[in-house]
Amino acid sequence: MKKIIYSLVLILSISLCSEGILIGQDDTTVNEPVKIRLSLLYQNINNTGPRLLATVKTKVDRSYITLEDVNVKFYFGDSDESLYLGSLKTNDSGEALFLVPETLRKIIDTTAVYLYTAAVQNEPGIKDKETDVEIIKSKVDLSFYEEDSIKKVRYQFWTADSLGNMIPVEDLNPIFYIERLFGLLAVSGEFATTDEEGVCEIVFPDNLLGDSNGKLKVLVKIDDHDDYGTIIAKAQIDWGIPLVQSDQSLERELWSSGANAPIYLVFIVNALLGGIVFTLIYIIFNLYRIYTLSHE
């Protein structure tokens, strides 16, 4: 297990090639340790296990900039009495996303409330800093069904009570999204709320473009909740309008490539050129006749 963590650290500690974008490396930092802001977010996607996202920032000229290549240590519990999970270096957006390995999850899973701590310790030029997040264990379910030809998405949320039993949660406001290339497109319109069974249903819009098979990636998110953290449920469904692609680059148009020139144009140009070349060949042939006549 140690080996795994070691390897994780190793992989991530190989520095990124970033020419000149390394931020916050003023000369002053050498003498005085930099004060940093360390934030820690808890995420869980499709109940697959905890993901810890630490972000390291520092204040420069009244605005925060992210710090790259800072080693962040992750603990389960607080730093006094805790289980060391591993450490990671921040990437070029100042983030370190730590996936708690399955082997450790079994230990963690025994309680209903988790405390995670992220710490920056003994980093050269950086003041030590730690931050924690307390999370209540939760579970989500996402399903799709069709009722009277109306497509619906059903979402359900449970949390653990003090005894460790999973109970539904009321009055949560999950947001329903479709994954798009540059961001999440909200589809739930007005605020959807979970009922006493922890269930929240929305009517799925029928005018969304999917991929060529009509597939859409649906994502339901509770963002940075005080008790549960960021809880995401994801699934794929073929309820989109299948994309009919017309490859414009293959059309024979005036703005297409030379190889795809309009037929009429190819024909006209070649016919004209051919006619003239033919005539010129005839003229040259005549010159040859003149030549042979002189040499008979």
């Binding site: 479709i178 798009r180 290339l181 540059f182 961001g183 999440l184 497109l185 473009l209 692609q245």
Partner: peptide, 13 residues
Amino acid sequence: DENEDAVSNGSVT
């Protein structure tokens, strides 16, 4: 992406 009928300005899609 017009094929996704979605545009984003970095904060909203």
